[in-house]
Amino acid sequence: MISLLTYAVIILGIIAIVQLARVFELTGELKGRKEWEISEKDNSTQANLWLWFGIILFILFGWLVVEYGDSAQPNGSLHGVAYDNLLMVNFAIVVFVFLLVNAVLFYFAWKYKRDANRVPEYFTHSTKLEMIWTIVPSIVMAGIIIYGILFWYETIMTKPSEDAIAIELYSKQFDWTARYGGKDNQVGSANVRLIEGANFLGIDVEDPSSKDDIIIKGEFHIPVNKEISFQLRSQDVLHGAYMPNFRMQINTVPGQMTRFHFTPNKTTKQQREELDNPDFHYVLLCNKICGSAHYNMQMNIIVETEEEYNKWLGEQQDFMAQVPELFENNNEKLMAEKK
């Protein structure tokens, strides 16, 4: 019944618009109005509307800034502090230009409406003015480029240190798996062609460094203030490893390894206290369209102190302990080959 009413209202609304238009049309014709002649009244109404539009737009912009201006996810990484500064500086410039240019535009749109007493200036060009608005943006852009590229260089183009904790993030439709390097801090080699039964990551059992790897599903832990070096793989399609809190993101690409590294600087517990939100979680989510459950491909990350982290890691079984038969089979195979 309600839906029927809704349809009726919509249809009636459209009919009303159509009728209204016809009324406009007919009265216009009666008055001898010509569509190409814009009356003074109409023209100044439109000009005033520009001014009102500008004012309301800026007020609502202000409201959005007050209400949502600091809604970026709380930062939890060392380089994130510098990132947030870079973003702030850029935003300051961008918002200033947005406000200034739009304000001038709306003001001119209102101020220079047709006026019988004004003779428009035959002003075709001014090399001086054009130089100003070529050179000033060039200088600003140069600053933005240099600042941005320096940060990019320090964050993305540098290699992680030797003792950074090695973790592999493995993506497939629609979940994540983390694999730690284990005691040797080296993630063993792997290939999707080796996937079989319990070896769902396709780990190469012949690689000695894969024995002590630790495979984690659900949520993974990392220690605070220690550099973490991630390598990322994908099993099927492109995915995007996105950790908004750590200001970090890279796609995972089938057939290719991608990497990033960062240092978390706040534990989950600290963050919860600061935000007064006991449910806070650092999250890894997928940020490259990957199929029907793309919107829910997530994994929690726990950042904790080094002691807590070591304790947690010690409780985890390594790969060889989880699937000993894989290694036994491999040993038998090796023996057979030797004979």
Partner: peptide
Amino acid sequence: VTGGVTGIILADSALDIAIHD
């Protein structure tokens, strides 16, 4: 203008780290 200025942010590879996609 309004859409162009936010392009300045997205053109910066460094800022894309957190707001890409």
